[in-house]
Amino acid sequence: MIIQNSIRASFCYLSSIWGALPGLFLFLALWEFGSSVYGSFILPAPLETFTALAQMIEQGRALSPMLVTATRALSGFVFAVSLGSLLGLLAGLSVTFSKLLRPVVTVLLGVPPIAWIVLALIWFGMGGATPIFTVLVTTFPIAFIAAVEGMRTVDQRLLDMANSFNASFSLKIKDLYFPHLLSYLFPAWVTALGMAWKVTVMAELLATSDGIGASLAIARVNLETDEAMGWVVAVVLLLLAVEYLILEPLKRKLEPWRKSVKSNHIA
């Protein structure tokens, strides 16, 4: 039964990749077309880009900046998202608290990331603290707002049900609030993750001498467009790897009921 299910699950997963392939190829075709129109100095072709990235990896120039950037993006992301989700959960329990914090969070969301980078540069100077701080301050509100929203939309009838059995507060958090909250948190986490990479690279470009952002700056100065594109591809690959190797499996593990409901409808 279990083996059958997991085979079916991986089959579904593979078939979803098949569905995405035509879109991906269309994108590559357009990119190739653009390159043939504007020339490889303005827009290097996909093959040149991937070759440049492969070369950088071979020469040992690529992996260490990728690792540095990934560490910065992920440490900021994990910290901000756990803090934001937890505080949002608590704030969502009380109407007063969530009303109190809402405008603060809106202000945080409204400040453009580049402004945070400038401020962080003033406060922390050049170095790794600037990108991490910027990631923290830009992704925290995303998780926080999603958690508050999730808490405020818990079905009152389910709460009545739990109360009719005298369920303790901790049981309600574990079996009622949290599972409901997850459907709000996951999309927010994915958004925050994307934001974390973008902000890290941007901050690195201005504030650090290592990481993908710094390497991009060097490629720009040397007018090595293919290397610059290679770095862009590297960032995207890292983001996809984290999303599909960590977040997606996590979602499957935490929300098995969603998949079952879906497969049942198809059957």
Partner: peptide, 21 residues
């Protein structure tokens, strides 16, 4: 409305009251 918890299987739903105890 049955007020079952969508994220738990039927067995866990039935034992919810016992879990609360």
């Amino acid at each position: 409305e049955d007020c079952t918890l969508a994220w738990m299987n039927a067995l866990d739903n039935i034992s919810f009251g016992l879990k609360a105890q």
